[in-house]
Design a binder for these strands. Sequence first.
DNA 1: AGCGTCAAGGCAATCGTTTGCCGAACGTTT
DNA 2: AAACGTTCGGCAAACGATTGCCTTGACGCT
Lengths: 347, 347
Amino acid sequence: MPETLEETLRKTVRAATISEVAALAGVSTGTASKALNGRGSLRPETRLRVQQAAEQLGFVVNGAARSLQTGRTYTVGMITTDSIGRFSIPLMIGAEDALGAGQVSVLLCDARDDPIREKYYLRTLLSRKVDGIIVTGRRNQARTPIATDLPVPVVYAFISSSDPRDCSVVPDESDGARKAVRHLLAIGRRRIAHITGPEHHHSAQVRAAAAIEALGAEGLRPATDTMYGEWSEAWGRQAVGMLLSTGADVDAVFCGSDQIARGVAEALREADRDVPRDVALVGFDNWDVMVEGCRPQLTSIDMDLEGIGRSAAELLLAAINGEPVQGQRAQLCRLVPRASTAVLAES
Amino acid sequence: MPETLEETLRKTVRAATISEVAALAGVSTGTASKALNGRGSLRPETRLRVQQAAEQLGFVVNGAARSLQTGRTYTVGMITTDSIGRFSIPLMIGAEDALGAGQVSVLLCDARDDPIREKYYLRTLLSRKVDGIIVTGRRNQARTPIATDLPVPVVYAFISSSDPRDCSVVPDESDGARKAVRHLLAIGRRRIAHITGPEHHHSAQVRAAAAIEALGAEGLRPATDTMYGEWSEAWGRQAVGMLLSTGADVDAVFCGSDQIARGVAEALREADRDVPRDVALVGFDNWDVMVEGCRPQLTSIDMDLEGIGRSAAELLLAAINGEPVQGQRAQLCRLVPRASTAVLAES
DNA sequence: AGCGTCAAGGCAATCGTTTGCCGAACGTTT
DNA sequence: AAACGTTCGGCAAACGATTGCCTTGACGCT
């Protein structure tokens, strides 16, 4: 007789409980528990017998029951304030990586920049008794702490909390900007312009300031005033138009984002300026699809988002285990050189 | 006396339990439970008193205890087989959306295309007693079912299971390709080429076949043989080179991806062919950063990944509630017209 | 023979909620 | 006044695992 549709789709293979395992192995549930968790003092033979019984029955512990007893869920919540985006993903991967290795699962919450949703998610996370929470999101200013007096530790990743005592892991954008400028200087450029995003944007400010400072350290000044605009290719193209029309003498451009840089590359190309011969180019973000689609391929600054996610998760684990860390950790950036800043063979 | 660092970071605000709430409200725990869950028959006044007590103590139920009792966790697992990527994210957002509204949380698992990790995650999901599982990942062939005889329902999103009885939600790529071709026909193009990804790639095949068929329906044939290559801008540029050097007479190109299309647009531009006047262009994926960075902005086919994620979640919820659905659901695509297929004013 | 020691494993309390069942109190009906 | 129905709320048994404590029996020592 063929299975009904119902049966086919929902095999009610009611999972075995530890008492069934114990019964099969001929021991008490307590002993079975000890056997499976490597605790207590048991004859190796007994231990093995229990393990085989568990295997045979396809036993998987009931996490709810265990959590109830032990008070730990081996679960952390991850709240992204903006919609899960380009930046959140590497962060998540990194965190998931560090946690997964420690057998901890991640509950994903997308608050969509809505404080109401955020509170709601926080509540459900607490009700699920997560062991800790990672807060992340689009970078801008420091954000207000998600809550105070939480019964679980919280770590902020990428964004930082406005309370300096909270634990945050952020990229050191100044470091990134300095590395970009130094790299351009190292390949012999001296007339460097900086084209970036909106002036009111925190990242734009920080990067611009660090770039100017790095030039200053060599006794140089930017080739033009910092050109603030948007984080888009279109702005990059437009900025090049402005640069060329003013006849500015520029041999390198450091861009506030890869998108801007790509626009710059295109516009330069169309104006018959060779990259990197006439103008060298450095972007920011090291966003694969942008740096690789760019002609020539784009040298860029990598904020190591995965690393930030990983660090945040590690700090969270430490806090969960009773070794809390306070304050901000700034993670250094990495310059990834590509053709847009290649040193050309003398010929 | 100032707080110790320990105190500051880990306010051990031991969460209140329902018995404390009950005590404060002067009722038994059973009654308190009924009051908070809107069950049983209680005087409205009592109910209110309990609710206020809960409020006052900042009570949040212990999900573990509840799950243990009710057997439901209001949690589903989401396994992505490839690393969380560009496609997985909208799917996740969609799923999270549909589930979040139903108060269900998502446990995120990134199996990184590694069967071992996949098994491991599956096991932890089962141990966490998730109510259901969504499997997703990079699209290619149908994948082997993640397991059989699971105690919980499974829905495949974007990818499909090779067992036709499993429930899968996939994009109707043929529909997308047909819509692209019909759109080009509708704006008066007749000599249409198709440039796409690797020939061995399932999506490339399906889209190409549907495109040819849609042309055939109008008694037309493609302007050239389908041009298989890679899913990259570089291939798009290269393909245009080939097209132009053979002197093929083409007034539109349908591309298998937005990246290819963008490469095509650039190469055409550099060859002084106007888009859309000389050659109209349609991409596939409707990937914001590609379609918007393209000059002119790119008409593209949107597979509605969020919608697929949402449908998958809804089907999963239905299955959890005892109304399982079998088989594949194909979700239609949407054409998003932009400047690359604009009809020009006669002038 | 008597005693102490130790290993092995059973017992039962416990975690926090939910829920079916039962009892008390009160009002209504005859 | 007795019988009955309702409403409200308490009681206690689950759910499944963990763990400290206790019992049992074997063994070694004096």
